[in-house]
């Protein structure tokens, strides 16, 4: 098997799916470090974002790239409302209660998607897109856009967290919520801000997944495990770690078929997750251990 074939059929798909995992994993890592629980509705929130974009595409007749910001805003609003309706009430309880609540939210969000959009596979545009060939490497526009959009969004988030006042407040709360509160950080506003960012990233992950593959009611749920594996692999609380983790998980999944029977591909993310928790629970970039 030639090097080009490995790049075209294993590495490129791995990087594309890895970028999508990365977008989701960044959201998971933020919730993990700032709110301190595993958010199981993350995948279904991504599904919601993807289908909201589909709504914008079918109703407004716009391209999916125009629908992306619309979906990000709407999903961010949905995330804030979900937090206010379900998680805020449980904030003082043991975290496991919120984790379970988020599983319930996941089922509810998915049910809403199924009721509104049905259970059939959908796509933003009908037909198939054959890739362009650049020096033997087969790439589609949408794949390049996915990768660059992921890098752009993560860079923007990084600058925001490092430079802005609110970004610093979020990091402070991630380090120590009580101390942050005493120093005058408004915890409620930080929580809301976190959900706005997480909702937006979720929608982006969902839209890019739908753009590169298909929209299905279960699409987000099946992404949940690889996204968690990516967040933990990178180190909880580390945005750049989540990106690294996402790419590694994506590439490892695709490459696994070179060595393993193809039916074990889905188990790759799980194996990575287990291995990291056993060997290096802080993750590659030294994150938190919760």
């Amino acid at each position: 098997m030639g090097a080009l074939e490995i790049i075209n059929f294993y590495l490129v798909p791995g990087i594309v799916i890895g970028s999508i995992y990365a977008l989701g994993a960044v959201g998971i890592t933020l919730v993990f470090s700032i709110l301190r629980y595993a958010h199981l509705a993350h995948g279904d929130l991504a599904t919601l974002g993807a289908f909201l974009a589909l709504g914008a595409v079918t109703l407004g007749g716009v391209s999916p790239y125009v629908a992306l910001p619309v979906a990000m805003v709407l999903t961010a609003a949905a995330a804030v409302m979900i937090d206010k309706a379900f998680y805020a009430y449980l904030r003082e309880r043991p975290k496991i209660v919120t984790v379970m609540a988020s599983l319930g939210v996941a089922l509810m969000v998915r049910a809403i998607v199924q009721v509104v959009w049905g259970v059939d596979s959908e796509t933003y545009t009908r037909g198939i897109v054959r890739p362009d060939v650049w020096f033997g490497i087969r790439l589609r526009d949408r794949e390049l856009i996915t990768i660059f959009a992921m890098i752009g969004l993560v860079l923007a988030l990084h600058v925001f967290l490092q430079q802005s006042k609110w970004g610093k407040a979020m990091r402070a709360m991630s380090d120590n919520p009580d101390l942050a509160l005493l120093s005058g950080v408004d915890n409620k506003k930080v929580v809301m801000l976190t959900w706005i960012i997480v909702g937006g990233l979720c929608a982006a992950a969902g839209v890019f997944l739908g753009l590169n593959y298909e929209l299905k009611a279960m699409m987000g749920w099946t992404m949940l495990l690889p996204m968690f594996a990516a967040a933990i692999l990178g180190g909880v609380g580390r945005v750049e770690g989540a990106v690294l983790g996402g790419l590694i998980v994506g590439i490892a999944e695709e490459m696994s078929t070179l060595f393993l029977p193809t039916e074990y591909k889905a188990a790759t993310a799980f194996a990575i997750l287990l291995l990291m928790l056993l060997v290096r629970p802080t993750g590659l970039l030294k994150g938190k251990v919760l």
Binding site: F9, G14, M218, M219, E253, S256, T257, P261, T262, E263
Partner: peptide, 15 residues
Amino acid sequence: AAHEGEKASYRSNLA
């Protein structure tokens, strides 16, 4: 070869 359902990418399986 068998494959698991509901994955996003099957390009490596197909290759």
